[in-house]
């Protein structure tokens, strides 16, 4: 039982991680459009609506819009393009 043996490593090969920079932040949110992205998990629509109401009550100068991807578990390029075109920031939730 004390004999030294050599065995294989059973793990696969991870892809290279390529660093990606964050987008520049805003100096303030007043007058800006913030997209509230409903990730489509159950009851997330209720959460997002409460978030919208919070902004309306506490930061009325912020324009909020709700967006939803076409499918769950998908990176909806069309939705992202729409947000990038006329949005200034985004809050996504509630994801796993």
């Amino acid at each position: 039982m004390s004999q030294q043996i050599t065995v294989h490593d059973p793990r696969g090969y991870a892809p290279k991680v390529v660093g990606k920079r964050l987008a520049p932040r805003l100096s303030a949110l007043d007058g800006k459009t913030v997209y509230l992205v409903d990730c489509l998990f159950d009851n997330t629509d209720v959460f997002i609506e409460q978030l919208r109401q919070w902004f309306a009550e506490h930061l009325p100068a912020v324009n909020t819009r709700i967006a939803r991807p076409k499918e769950t578990w998908s990176d909806d390029a069309e939705m992202r393009a729409a947000i990038a075109a006329d949005g200034d920031a985004a809050i996504l939730g509630v994801g796993l």
């Binding site: 990606k20 920079r21 964050l22 987008a23 520049p24 932040r25 805003l26 997209y35 990176d75 390029a77 992202r80 393009a81 947000i83 990038a84 949005g87 200034d88 920031a89 985004a90 809050i91 996504l92 939730g93 509630v94 994801g95 796993l96």
Partner: peptide, 22 residues
Amino acid sequence: MGLEQDGVPSVAVHTHVFKRLC
């Protein structure tokens, strides 16, 4: 993350049990 690369500053909201996974 795709939005950040599109130049849109973003915050992702999760429930707390998924912290390590996030």
